[in-house]
Simulated assay, not measured.
Amino acid sequence: MSSVQRNPWLICAHHAVHSAMFPTAIFPLFWTRDIGMSVATMMSVQAFFSLSIALFEFPSGYIADRLGHRRALVLASGAIVVGWALYALARGLWSVLAAELVLGVGFSLVSGADAGLLYDSLREQGKEHEFARWYGRMRSAAQISSGAAALLAGFLYARWSRLPFVLELACWVVALGIALRLGETRRAPARVDDHLGRMRAIVRDALLRRPDLRAVMLLSVVFALAAYLPTWLMALYATEAGADVAWIGPMWAVASFTTAIGAMVSEGAGRRLGMTGTLLACLALVAAGYLGLALSHHALGFVFYFLLTFMRGLHMPLLHHEEQRLAPDDDRASCVSLRSFLFRAAFVLLGPVVGLGVDRHGHRPVLWVAGALMVALTLVSIGLFRAAARSSAQVDRA
């Protein structure tokens, strides 16, 4: 079996190993108890992480397209090893910010490179049509791994608050080894004399001249934001409602498993419901998830969050396949990174506002407002997507 033929399985393995995020479930506890942050500071740190990724996001995708997707994944894995080492040694806010900055650089390099390498590897084998299936497998493997890690997170944190970070460092050493075994595809990077001009052209084409690609990116950003905004609130939301701290790890695990299930059924949902039907189902899940979280005062109210995590898995393979199909061959990772940049930039704006709102007014009023905003943005995005699809169909018939 050639190295490119092995790539889909190796990419799934890489995604699974690097998604075993042992610290994620206990981050709110670590930040507030070990580092001494408020909720507003905690959300601001996440906004800083998003900003650090955003600053490097699009340039890193462009670099991946020029250097090769495999090399980008190797460089990313090495940077993230350093980032988790810094986190394991962190003692205060500034050391946490330093670790977040290095991790931001590393994760920005991953963004776009893995999906681009997967798409190009399948296309080189004549299996481009299998991308949604493989992307679903990749996301499912990642979420199952993430859920399993979350089940252990509370136990590891109780043993030693730094232990989750030490194990995460070990995982990324393994991820680096997997990245080194990946094969680069035969796609020859286009010769570019004016890199800044090329980057401006990519942004201009994706956001101004290509309404179909713009609509897909906007939908992906809105759905990702709807699922991500409550993520860092759920541990505090649940414990304040009366849930035991021991539930946090299993709660995070179930969230990951429901995302995995959504990714598994995504391709089938697309066949049965069509793209528009699946998008409307995702809209319904967003509305029900936020409404349930805002109304519930029971200790188990956090279960409504699982509707949002299922939605996250459901939409990603279909929309990302559309994104890969529409993106130019030589700038595929750049387009994915541009979309990720838009998401990160949106979170930089909204994350601290949400954290400040929770500090002042509590979780439920903020979830009411956030839910209404996400539903409105989703409706607008679906409308733009349908309009772009109709326009493309008319051009094809002409």
Rank of each mutant, 00 (worst) to 15 (best):
A76N: 00
R397V: 09
L93V: 05
V358D: 02
E168I: 09
H298K: 14
A170T: 11
M199Q: 10
A376F: 14
V192I: 05
A142V: 01
R66M: 06
L308N: 14
T259M: 14
W172K: 08
M42F: 13
S121Q: 13
L338Y: 03
A170S: 08
A76L: 04
R200S: 02
A158M: 10
A201V: 13
I63Q: 10
L219S: 10
S111F: 09
D114Q: 09
T24L: 15
M275Q: 08
A333D: 00
V375K: 07
D65E: 00
C335H: 14
R390A: 13
S44D: 00
A153K: 13
G268F: 11
F49R: 12
Y305M: 07
Y290Q: 00
V166P: 13
V369A: 15
G262R: 10
E240P: 10
S145N: 05
A227F: 14
Y237L: 02
M37V: 08
L152R: 10
W94F: 10
V174A: 11
L307D: 01
R198S: 11
S381L: 09
F223H: 15
G112Q: 01
V81H: 13
Y62S: 02
R187K: 15
A153R: 06
L233Y: 09
F131H: 04
A281H: 06
A88Y: 07
V216R: 09
F302M: 12
L319E: 01
T32F: 05
W252Y: 15
L229W: 03
L208Q: 10
V286C: 03
V353I: 05
V216N: 06
H315D: 02
L163V: 03
L117F: 04
L86W: 15
V354C: 10
F341Q: 14
R71F: 08
Y62N: 00
G147S: 01
S121Y: 04
R209S: 12
A149V: 01
V110H: 09
S52Q: 06
A115S: 13
W31Q: 04
L86R: 08
L167S: 03
Y228I: 00
A226N: 04
L169Q: 02
R209N: 09
V245A: 14
V286Q: 02
G197E: 01
V74C: 05
L67V: 03
L338K: 07
A327Y: 11
G92W: 09
A115Q: 12
A226S: 09
W160L: 11
H14W: 13
F107C: 02
P23W: 03
V353R: 15
L236W: 15
M1Y: 11
Y87Q: 15
V102T: 05
A260V: 06
G126Q: 02
V265M: 05
A253K: 10
A241T: 03
A393Y: 08
L307R: 13
L89P: 14
S256I: 01
R187G: 03
K127F: 02
W232M: 10
M199H: 12
D359Q: 10
A40G: 11
H315G: 03
W172D: 01
K127V: 02
